[in-house]
Simulated scan of single mutants.
Amino acid sequence: MKVTERYRKAAETGDVDLAMTTFAADAVLHSPLTGRVRFTGHAELRPLIEVAYSHLKNVRFVADLGDEETRVVIYTAQIGDEPVEEAALLRIEDDLITEATLYVRPLPGLVTLMSAFGPDIARRNHRPAAARFLSLATKPLRAMVRSGDKHAVPLAAPRR
């Protein structure tokens, strides 16, 4: 089974152990939230994947494109009550992912992801004060984005 087949099956079934078999020992994952954060190696990737699989539901892959060295996989999912789509640009060597760069849309789904993942990752990194801060800090942002998506964005859309 090729690496992206294992990667997709792991995400669709929530199998963290299978997901870990897809990454090289020194793999790097670039956050979809900021260019300032990356996760390197299995010790940092496992908690992130555990958090992701605990929050993402109904993961369904819709594309797996590329060649043996570079692949793009795209899935749809649900996080809380928000739909989300993610594209992952994967660099591959020896049938293992060496680098993953994640892109998430739409904005309400991305902000919901941030408000769920941030506190959980901080807790797993033994930073309870940071987890509380992130939980509180993301609530107003989530409310603003949801309100803007519902009320402001339609104002700019073409009339139908």
Rank of each mutant, 00 (worst) to 15 (best):
L141N: 07
M144V: 13
M1F: 12
R38H: 10
A122D: 01
I121Q: 00
L29G: 07
Q78K: 11
E12G: 10
R132D: 11
R36L: 11
D15R: 05
R91M: 09
S31P: 13
H55A: 15
P106A: 06
G14L: 01
H126D: 14
G148I: 11
A137M: 09
D81A: 08
L89C: 11
L102Y: 10
I79Q: 06
A122R: 06
L134V: 03
L29T: 00
Y75T: 08
P47T: 01
D26N: 12
G66Y: 10
A137H: 04
A43C: 02
L45G: 05
P108Q: 00
H42N: 04
A100R: 07
L107G: 02
M114H: 12
V84Q: 10
R105P: 07
P128T: 05
T76H: 13
L45E: 14
K9D: 05
P83V: 03
M20W: 02
T101E: 04
L107C: 08
L134R: 13
P108F: 00
D17K: 12
H151T: 14
A25S: 08
R142Q: 15
F39I: 00
P158V: 10
G41W: 03
I49R: 06
E44H: 03
I92E: 01
S115Q: 08
F117S: 11
R6W: 11
D149W: 14
V84D: 01
A25W: 13
R160V: 01
R6H: 01
M144P: 02
H42I: 05
E5W: 04
A129K: 07
E50Q: 14
D67Y: 09
E12D: 08
T22L: 03
D149I: 08
P158A: 03
